[in-house]
Every structure is written in C-alpha cells, then in structure tokens.
Design a binder for these strands. Structure first.
Lengths: 348, 348
DNA sequence: ATGAAAGCGCTAACAT
DNA sequence: ATGTTAGCGCTTTCAT
C-alpha cells in the first residue's frame, strides 16, 4: 500500500489538513513543522495520488486554452484529433478546454486570440507560437501570472514555457535528404519548394536536407522557390520551375503548398518524369503516394503532437512540476505507399 | 457539469445504491426499475467517472498478468519499457501487475507461466501467445472464468480476446519490399533470412515483401534460409549464403537472427558489397545503420505496443466493455540512419 | 497555526 | 428489493 497523506499525518502527529498545506506550500503552517512533514514525506516515499486530487478539485477544474494556426492547413487535422483524444481521456479528471483556430502566421491575430483566452481565464495554454517579439512578450507575461505554456509543433526561443512538443526540423530535413539520396541512387536534379527563408523551422528542413545531400555529389539542387505556404503561389511556382528547368527530375516540398504543387505536376502531365518527396500525410500526398508520384513522405506524428501537448500541460499543472524534458520530440517516420496510415493507432 | 449517479438517483426517485446496482448489473434490483434507470441514464447522457470508480475500488485492485517470450530477444526491451510506463501512469488507479518472461516459442513453458498466474489470481492478461491448440484452449478457458486477454505483438486465431495490439505483418513485409525496390533502383540479387516457414507471422513478412518485389522484374530472390530466430544459426547461415552466392548484393532479415547475421557480414568483410534491410531498432541494427551497412529498418513501435496493451486491457476491465477495435495496429515506420530513435517520445 | 469535517463520484458492506 | 452509510485520498471551508 502506497503512503497516503493520512499516514504522514499520523507519523508527524498533525492533522491531514496541515500535511496538505505543508506539502503544497499553501502557507499558514509553522516552518519547522512544514520542514518536518516534508522530510517525513520524502522518507516514507510519499507520492500524491493524482486521481484523488483530481476528484477533490473537481469543483474548480483546470482550464486549458489552445491556439492553433490550423485554418486552411490540412496537416493540423490530425493534431486536433490528438488534442481532442487527450481531452476526452482527461475529462474524468475535470478539465475544460477551448480551442481557437487561426490562419497562417499573423502575429496580430495570434495576440488577439491570446487576449480572448486571458479574458475567459485559463490555467494553461497550448499554442503554435509565432516567433515574434510581441508574441514572445505576451507569452512571458502570461507565464508571470502563473499560466503554464506548452508549445505545439512550433518552437519559440526565450519563452519560459513548460515544453515544446514537436519534431526536430533539422533532423526531418536530414531524414528527407537520406531518402532522396538513396532512392535516386545519388543521381538527380532537384527542385525545392519551401515557404519562406524567414520561417526558421522550414529553413531548417532545407538545411538538414542539404547537409545530407552534400554527400551525394551527383544530386544537384537545380532550382529553389519560396511559395509562402500558399497553394496558388506554389501551383504557379512549380509550373514555372518545371517549364523552365526541363532537367529537373525530383522535387522536395518542405511544407505548405504541397497540394498546389502536386496539382501543377498533374496539370502539366509530368508525373512520369518526376519523383516527389514531401512531409506529412495530408490527403493530396496520400493520393499521390498511391499513384506512385510521391516516393516517400516524412511523417512527424501530428496526432501524438496534439495529444502529448495536452497531456504534458495537464500533468505539469496537476503536479506543479516541470516535465522531465523540455524538448519533447516526436518521431520522424518515412512513409511509402505501403505504410501510410490507414487505421493504425497514433493516427486515429 | 456531467451527469452523476446522484443525479440519476434523484431523477428516478431511488437511492444511489440502486442506481449503481442497476447500471452495473449487480443483480438484486427490480427489472422494471433497472430498465427505467438505464434508459434514464442514457437520456441524461451519463458516463461513469472512471477515476471516482478507481478510487472507490482501491481496496481490491485490478490485477494484471503479463507473459512475454522476451528472453534473449532485444526487440522486447522496448515493449517492456512501454508496459512499465503504462503501469506507472495507471498506478494511481490502483493496479497490480506481474511480468513473467520466457524464452522462444515453447508452448509448455507458456502453459506453465499461465498456470502460475492463474494460481496468484488475475483479472486480465497481456500475452505474446504461441499459436498452438493447447495454448488456445488454455486461453479460452481463462476467458470463460472472466479473465480478459489482450494479445501483444503476436496474434492468435479463435481466442475470445479483447484485442490484438501489434503490427500488420503482411503490411510490414510490403513496406520492406517497397523500400528494397526503391533503394536498389529495382536491380538486385536478394538473400532472405527468416526464422521458419512454420511461424505464420514471419512468413507473412516474406509474402508481403515478395508481393511488392514482383513489380520489380530485376530484383531476384537468390537465396533463402531459415535461421529459427537463433543468432548462431543465422551467423553460420548468412556466412554460407554469402560465400556460395557471390552475386548477392542485398539481404532482407525478416526477424530474429539479425544480430548474428550482421556479425557474419562484418567477419567476412563484405560490408561494401551489401545493402541490408531489417526490422526493428535493436542495438546491432542501430550500429549498422550508422555505419551505412543497413540501408533501412522497419519499426513497429514496440514501446507503443507494450503501453497500449496494458492500457487497453485496463480500460476494458474498468469499463466492462470491448475495446472499439479488435485489431489495434501499430504504425510501421521506415527508419534510415537519420531518423532512428534517439530521444523521441513513443520510445522512452 | 492547526484541527475537524464535509465533499468530489463511486462502490460495498450493512440495514431494512 | 431497496436504502443508508462509510470510505477511497485529497482539498477546502469552517472552527478553534
């Protein structure tokens, strides 16, 4: 039988209330007594029982806010599924969650959503932060008021958050580089489509890929465009790229814009000439994995990212402790047409 | 506020005890009243609060037995980590778990372990079942006495278990076939090392791979040995295979024996001649992914298999309901040297 | 500063 | 067959 607060109370010759106050630093307890209780608890190997605590605090439940720049980005569908799944499984603990969705990387929009959540009152926040000074400051202000933050999918420097949950972007680029090098047998003229050099994490995917491709002297990066995560820009950009460089035989889509770019290839009927490498398992990618146009896509476990963000935040609030690791990296997985997710777990 | 048993009691004009008895079919309640309570509960959207239930039943906790044929098989290290992780996170719910480890596929050994667990008394069982008639019968007998079963990593037909948690073996073979075909550019003389044709699931990996490779007319299966999951047999078999077939340029290790086989390659100094494809992320594979000998390995999420088995069993016992899906497939993931797991979640 | 007691939602033992 | 009550481990309010 594990040690309970009652056992400690008896051992310390005080009431359960006092033990609770001491152990949780609620104040109003003689420092000497508090110290005695704490050492006693440690000696007896006390571990608070989370579910009992959750039951007891059910009347003022933990409130979690979520802000995702998910609108118009099919990648986030799975992240949201993961968030909802974790929420479901935590509902017995009495938690309240509100998701707010926004489009793209507009900091003003994100600041607005933050304000709305603050108004309602929250204990914790899951966010895909936009890495600007204003957002950084706003987040740090929240932390000062006691709100705990977990970053999901996007990281941000110099914010006192609890954890970042997402992939290692440089590593994801390396993984892509590895599969590009191997499947082209080290002979290729590659076109790269990225969002913007300004987006640090997407740039990491390019750098990671290049660092590996440098080992393949006959893989040449022939062209390189920025499509700003916009499907139309990507569509037109890819069209131009392919028409202007008729030696390009493979394409590397770093992020958003993949759907538009694939459409361009189909409209040009250039499927047979090209090998395409992408990220994530969005619908357009799955279709073209089946058709054989996309050779491989790198998955970053979006479902797990969502679920783990919520769970990590919850545990962090409940236990009043930092998570054991600050950077919680999800796996990077190469998917071909045979192992794309149909009905495995971590997915649904 | 969610509906509680108290709300239903009030609405039905009975006591909470009666509601509890009715909803849990504990008997000793007027059928009409029971029916009324049940429909009322459904109407009011009642969902039992798991954590309250767990607290209340803490005095006779759920006992879970685990039987794994993990001895001498490094693959299972991660499965066990997953099992222990799930156990930790469920310990507040008051569960007791006992793991029994055995070696290989000996049915008598497995029957013995089953008997030991039965003696101690268990409510649920996680097992890597050996698919023989005796084991099948023993498991079905247990189910009849009310013990719930979850199969982990290995499936078995005609057992009334709650769920199978593991990979789709045929699909894992297809995935391997895809990566072999792509990275060899469809030109290869392939040697296959499997455990035994008699082991259905390993055979599926061969069939799945062959089904895909048939699309690559210039990939030839040159040799094919059975190494019975034994490292020494594999070591010698691979040596012979490579010496007798000096046109073999790639190897496909279906399962156990990978460590021994890789050692044979090194001892023959044939690293440069070969491309190797394996399953799982056991230490020897990780080393040779780094060295470049292993091109890719197919991961099946062993940590998740362990954790999900325990969680599924626990939820199934607590809720007295079948899991939503009977076959819970873990993801199959292609790993190259850049995305093998170092410190991502799902792993540790 | 400390103790006592009620209560979170549910189960189980005991009454009726 | 049904009601009542104590209790699981913890928090919180109200006394002292």
């Amino acid at each position: 039988m594990p040690t309970t607060i009652k056992d400690i109370a008896k051992a310390a010759n005080v009431s359960r209330g006092t033990v609770d106050r001491a152990l949780n630093d609620r104040g109003g307890v003689n420092p000497d007594v508090a110290a005695r209780i704490k050492t006693l608890a440690a000696e007896m190997g006390y571990k608070p029982n989370t579910i009992a605590k959750a039951l007891a605090t059910r009347s003022n439940p933990i409130r979690i806010g979520v802000i995702l720049n998910s609108l118009g980005n099919p990648f986030f569908d799975k992240v949201i599924e993961g968030i909802n799944s974790a929420y479901d499984s935590l509902s017995d603990f009495g938690i309240i969650m509100e998701i707010r969705k926004m489009r793209g990387y507009d900091q003003e929009q994100q600041l607005y959503e933050l304000e709305q959540l603050l108004k309602r009152g929250i204990d914790g926040l899951v966010i895909t932060p936009i890495a600007t000074k204003k957002v950084r400051d706003a987040l740090n202000d929240m932390v000062k008021t006691g709100i705990q933050i977990v970053c999901c999918n996007l990281d941000i420097d110099d914010v006192a958050y609890q954890a970042y949950v997402g992939c290692d972007y440089f590593c994801s680029g390396q993984t892509a580089g590895g599969i590009i090098g191997m499947t082209t047998h080290g002979e290729s003229n590659l076109g790269i489509i990225t969002s913007s050099h300004a987006l640090y994490f997407h740039e990491m995917r390019v750098k990671g890929c290049e660092s590996v491709l440098s080992q393949f002297p006959n893989v040449h990066i022939t062209d390189y465009i920025e499509a700003g995560d916009d499907e139309e820009l990507s569509y037109n950009g890819v069209k131009t790229m392919l028409l202007e460089n008729n030696n390009i035989d493979s394409l590397y889509f770093v992020t958003g814009g993949t759907t538009g770019g694939l459409r361009a290839i189909h409209d040009l009927h250039m499927e047979d000439r090209l090998r395409v490498f992408t990220f994530d398992q969005i619908p357009a990618v799955i279709d073209d994995l089946q058709s054989g146009l996309v050779i491989a896509t790198i998955d970053q476990q979006p479902f797990t990212q969502g679920a783990t963000s919520v769970r990590t935040l919850f545990e962090s609030i409940m236990s009043k402790q930092m998570p054991t690791r600050k950077k919680i990296f999800t796996e990077l997985n190469i998917k071909n047409r045979y192992n794309i997710n149909t009905d495995s777990i971590n997915t649904k």
